[in-house]
Each structure stands twice: as C-alpha cells, then as structure tokens.
C-alpha cells in the first residue's frame, strides 16, 4: 500500500511458493467443506426431530436451545469449547477445530431447514403413505426433495460460517494447526504486509464467488420449473 510503484504479480507468486500458506489454505477449505457437510446432515436430522414435535411450545423450547450457540458471543463459545476439549482429552488441532465448526454450524442449518419443513403440508405425507410409501420412502421421496432448497441454503451458510470464523478457531486451534483467519490475524498483529494483501484478495474473491453461487442456487430453486414450461 505504501511505496506504490506499479502493478505486479510478484506477491501472488510468493504466496503460492509459500507452502506453509498453501497448507493453511487447504486446511481452511477442508475444514469448511467437511464441517458444512457433517453439520448439514446433523442439522437436517435435528430439524426433522423438531418438526416431529407437533406442539408449538415444545418446538419453541427446542429452538431456544438450538439458538444458544447462535446468540452466544464467539469468545464464550471459543473459551467453553477450549475447556471442553481439554477436559475430554482431545488434542487441540485439526479435530478440535473441525468439531467446533460442526458444532456452531448445526443451529444455522436447523434454522434454514425448519421453515421449509413446517411449511410443508402434512397431507403430503398422508398422500405418500396412502400411495403405499413406507416411512423410508416418505423421507427420501417426499420430505428430503421438498426441503432440499433449505438444505442447500443451510450447507452454504455453514460453509460461510466456517470460512468466516476467527474467534472460535483462535481458541481451539493449538500450535500446529492454523486456518486463514487465524493466520491473517497473527500476520496483521505484526503490521501491514503485501503478502496478506494478496491473501486477502484471494479470500475476498472466494467470498464473492460463494455469494454468487448461493444466490444462483436459491434463485434457481425458487423459480424451478419455469424454464420447462411448454
């Protein structure tokens, strides 16, 4: 930023020669994809469980528990998870970060899936049963396809939550393992560096891409079928 002398790709080249940084980028992506995937599965199961409670107040009580991690400040989540992992004897590193990311992504998946589930008319399930569907058929042929826009949205939210997270990761990451956010923080504490500038640009572009993909997906699922009109 200072001593601007012209455009160069020098910093990007340096970035990609830096194998340590490359590993961190890979770590970040693997954590994000894995945690989003697992959180989506558990979150969908959770949403279905909550949806199974027919009484409004038991649903609300479960949702309140569900939302605790969403409204809790990151520092508290980070600190309490640090205690948890230490007590459980889980070594800080890849697994502790992965578990934390799964844990704080589950409630957001539930929140994305549950409205779709509740909006579904219960007669659809009756109709499927009536047509001979077993409970497994009802789940795979009716419920899951119906709530799939919510599942996709939940997965993407979980992905962005994981990519964005700094505070929780910072607490549970230990020494040997790092993600991009944590790396930027430790570099930034030492001051401005052009290396981070290049890194930031990459992250920025990835974010923008995610936003575009997300809106494309929700847009498509929202207007699905219009293209097939004959």
């Amino acid at each position: 930023m200072n001593n601007f002398e012209g455009f160069t790709l020098e910093w990007y080249r340096e970035l990609f020669h830096d194998t340590r940084l490359l590993i961190i980028v890979l770590n970040t992506l693997v954590i994000a994809l894995l945690s989003a995937l697992i959180a989506t599965i558990i979150g969908v199961l959770g949403a279905i469980s909550i949806g199974n409670y027919k009484k409004r107040h038991s649903q609300n009580a479960l949702l309140a528990v569900n939302n605790v991690l969403i409204v809790s400040p990151d520092v508290i989540i980070g600190a309490s998870f640090l205690i948890l992992f230490t007590m459980a004897g889980i070594q800080l590193g890849f697994y502790s970060v992965l578990l934390s990311h799964i844990a704080f992504s589950i409630p957001i998946v539930v929140l994305m899936v549950l409205p779709k589930l509740l909006e579904m008319s219960p007669t659809l399930i009756d109709a499927a049963r009536d047509l001979g569907a077993s409970r497994w058929d009802v789940l795979t042929k009716v419920i899951l396809p119906y709530i799939s826009p919510g599942i996709v949205a939940g997965f993407f939210m979980a992905l962005t939550y994981s990519l964005d997270d700094f505070a929780v990761t910072f607490f549970v990451t230990g020494n040997g393992f790092s993600t991009l956010s944590v790396e930027i923080y430790s570099l930034a504490r030492r001051g401005i560096s052009l290396n981070i500038n290049a890194l930031s640009t990459i992250m920025f572009l990835v974010t923008i891409m995610m936003v575009i993909i997300y809106y494309y997906l929700t847009q498509r699922s929202g207007t699905k079928g219009v293209g097939f009109r004959r």
Binding site: A127, A128, L131, G132, S134, D137, Y146
Partner: peptide
C-alpha cells in the same frame, strides 16, 4: 396406511410440488 387397498383424493390435493404431473401419478 401404506398397506391398505384404498386411495385418497385430498382437500388440498396434496400433489408433490417437486414432481411433475407424470411423476405424481406414477408415484
């Protein structure tokens, strides 16, 4: 219900929104 020899036409029709006409009937 899935083992009974009866079929229902529902008040709100309960057609599966993610399937087209053919797939609804073929369900």
């Amino acid at each position: 219900a899935n083992k009974r020899q009866v079929n229902t036409v529902f008040q709100d029709y309960a057609l599966f929104p993610h399937l087209n006409v053919y797939e609804n009937v073929a369900f």
